[in-house]
Design a protein around this nucleic acid. Sequence first.
DNA 1: GACCAGGTATTGC
DNA 2: GCAATACATGGT
Length: 269
Amino acid sequence: MTKRLCLGSARAVDLKKTLTGGQCFRFSEDNGVFCGVAMGVAVRIYAVDGELFLEGDSSENALARWRSYLDLDTDYDAIKNELIAQEPRLSTAAERCGSVRILRQEPWEALCCFVVSQNNNISRIRGIVERLCELCAIPARGGGYAFPPPEAVAALTTDQLKGIGCGYRAEYIIAVASAVCDGSLELARLGTAPVDEARKQLLSLHGVGPKVADCVLLFGLHRLDCFPVDVWIKRALEGEFKDTQLQHSPYAGVAQQYIFEYIREKTES
DNA sequence: GACCAGGTATTGC
DNA sequence: GCAATACATGGT
């Protein structure tokens, strides 16, 4: 019998939008149960009777670790209200997507995955990331494979990466992995460095432009003031959010997720 | 077969 | 500085 851990109220987080919306790429949904690997542990997360449960991590600090991963200790209601006060046009998206949270992913995983993400779509990104994990074959606790550390990725050849569908991004992936390995990019330091400095460091990497840099800052380093602009967001900024100033909010990244999820929900077939 | 996807690097002005 | 273009791949 698997032990399950209660993470708190299910109302706090929209698992579907948060875990399968394109912040991370290793969770999939099966009948309301979200299975995936993060931090080297394979888990199942689901809601029952208004409560949020986790299975698969029986270690001592599992509760704190996964509450942190899902960012359950941040008051998103307050953030949502502040964003709506600043930009009333956000209210529809925020009410529909208000329980999307910004995951606290491992910075290296976010960097690597968002390099893969460029000019690509979410389902395809997921496939490539999964095959990358299989290729490196580093076991996760509880089954499946962990996201490979930079050393493992740097040891791959571009041909191996092309073989799993990376295409022209193969050399970018090697480049960022190498930069982390040889210390020219200190990801850990970027979490506390001034955000402009951190962004500059990321932009110096071959294969990392403004969009990927902001995704790493937001999803990998929890810099909530970052506002990644992809093709969906660009359209929103030219359309129903024309001339908004949300990009400059201290919670710009949260607003970005509301808009991103809202638009994609609307255009879902 | 063209167009698109959580873009970036390169080139030419 | 900014606009145009190539880049791999799989799904509509």
